[in-house]
Design a protein around this nucleic acid. Structure first.
Lengths: 344, 344
DNA sequence: GTTAGCACTCATCAGAGTGGAGTGCTAATT
DNA sequence: AATTAGCACTCCACTCTGATGAGTGCTAAC
């Protein structure tokens, strides 16, 4: 059986109507759908075909049809018309409070949730490499040294080090010099025993201090810095009857609360990144690789703060989410985010 | 009318039973309650009195009674017997991953949620004063200075500063000396124009750099550092039918998501702190000053990391939460937390 | 003061009946 | 050959009903 133009039109009509109403749509409804002047009986025959082909389902005999995942997929791939929705207000809102990047992202999550009525998730930017650019050890008071480490992405880490007795200024000076010349440009895995031995030899004395210092450097570099994840509007899930079932809703909302769920998912996209578009993707039902979202759809987009520093935005809703609007909103938003980050 | 011993016993029996079952308890149930050998008719009379006094309510005629807020309050104040519950497993769990303080707190939130089946919230420690202990400006590369500021609570802040041209080492040396001598021990409000003018005069040149540096220092000190708030188990709310109503549940869960709700509430406790106990408090229904929690009870405790550095733990559940267990668990937990923080 | 007994109230549940939306099939129409 | 009208049928959703049972308040007896 072939998916001719008429079938496509009918399928589209079914999906559009279902997205609107959330209720199974019957043949008569479609028959009245202006464009195609067909009787309900004809539609019924076509619907039977569409069902056989797997694009639509019947919740039970004598009910209307609803789109299947396959149907949604076809819709998203070929029939969607992204609505150019306006997100002007966002920019204004942001300009005011535009503090640090994470403030912006928090706002974005909130804004999207409020505007779409779905649950949203925004990951903080993910930096890739972790090479040391600059290290400095300073004496803060008699008992504390402060280690400051700047990485090549200009992110800064610091850590207090407790010492038993004050360390003299010239020792620190020497230590700093050695650390910087030896470790500069290195990744944590490149800091091997040989290097460490060399540092110790050069310093001759104060091995205890050096030990703590090196330990701190290692720890700091290894420190997991999974990007922060900001969520908003998770309770919007409860607005959609097909998800509001207690156990389902709990599962989904928990996934948002326990943000680690998203880390695995964020990791995946590392390799597929690259094309310069904002890379908007739609995952329908089982296409989500997070099990608890099997009854949802998720639309994601990738934003870029600068070369090599990117993050993700995700919108989660029922399968019958308004894809056109969501994709439109994201599209428009991404443009604005680009502007905002360019200014910084 | 007086609240004699028998009435108290009956009230206690009603509340205990209701906490257990969650269903209105009738006179016959209480009559069978071993200790007091009274017929249901007698109980009924007493119940009528208790209702008149406002300790219990009838959801509708011909239903059993449920405790009123006033009843719960009486129970919590005078009849509760904190169960010494074991939270040994926590300590073990923590020892392993005992990384930074915030990791510990995150774990605590999770642990409590899992163990109590209520929603939990743990605020990060709140530092009180914000005096500068140490400032250092360093040159990272040609275009970037790095400002590191250590506060008197040993927390460290840092911020990159972009400059147009490299700043020479001796200038930085001088700047650091001046900044430290001038600003040391000061609060942000004490850094007035006169001081700033003095710094500028001493430096003579490089006013532009100084301007940015001072701006950064000011911003950094003012930066809101409302403590982080970790939540867990918010979806537990859905387990309690009296809260699982969609709009109620959404309100409560949103409050947890939008953590700012708790900030106002955390602030309040500033003044009432001080007694050396762990200060466990129970807020029932309308006693919560967060409106969205009017149908919940919340049990809070205060932990202390060290002198003057404390945070809060909150457990939110239905009014018929198991106060005995929750208070017991918190009590035991607080002891363990003390140990853990002492080690650090 | 306590209790047994009784009439009464009200929520909950199961079953029956109804209406409506929608289908699939067949026969008639174009 | 494709389309349509018509009809019997299915199934959900809703309402109404009566039965059940838990629980009460009151009265009169103990």
């Amino acid at each position: 059986m072939e998916l001719d133009e008429r079938k496509l039109k009918i399928l589209q009509a079914i999906i559009r109507t279902y997205l609107d109403t959330g209720e199974p749509v019957g043949s008569r409804t479609i028959s009245k759908y202006s464009e195609l002047n067909l009787s309900s009986a004809t539609i019924r025959n076509e619907m039977a075909d569409l069902e056989e082909m797997g694009y639509i389902l019947q919740p039970h005999t004598s009910a209307g049809r609803i789109p299947s995942d396959k149907g949604y997929r076809l819709y998203v791939d070929t029939m969607m018309e992204a609505k150019e929705s306006e997100v002007n207000s966002l920019k204004e809102e942001l300009e005011e409070k535009a503090g640090r990047v994470d403030d912006v992202l928090k706002q974005v999550a909130k804004f999207l949730a409020a505007n779409t009525n779905y649950a949203t998730m925004v990951s903080g930017p993910k930096y890739q490499s972790k090479r040391v650019k600059f290290i400095q050890i300073t004496s803060v008071d008699e008992e504390h040294l402060l280690a400051v480490i700047v990485l090549d992405n200009n992110s800064v880490k610091n850590q207090m080090i407790r010492v038993d007795e004050a360390v003299e200024a010239e020792v620190l000076l020497k230590l700093n010099f050695i650390l910087n010349t030896t470790l500069n440009g290195l990744d944590v895995v490149e800091m091997n025993l040989a290097l460490i031995q060399r540092i110790k030899e050069q310093m001759e004395t104060h091995t205890q201090v050096i030990d703590s210092v090196l330990e701190v450097i290692g720890k700091t570099l290894l420190e997991n810095d999974d990007p922060e994840i900001y969520t908003s509007g998770t309770t919007n899930i409860l607005k959609y009857p097909e998800l509001a079932d207690k156990s389902k809703a709990a599962e989904i909302i928990s996934a948002f609360e326990d943000k680690e769920t998203f880390h695995s998912w964020l990791g995946l996209s590392d390799r597929e990144m690259g094309n310069d578009t904002h890379d908007i993707q739609v995952y329908i039902g089982d296409e989500n690789n997070v099990a608890s979202m099997r009854d949802c759809s998720m639309v994601t987009a990738t934003y870029q703060i600068r070369e090599g520093v990117y993050g993700k935005i995700g919108i989660v809703g029922p399968k019958r989410m308004d894809y056109d609007k969501v994709v439109g909103t994201l599209n428009s938003l991404m443009g604005q985010l680009d502007d905002i980050f360019k200014e910084k």
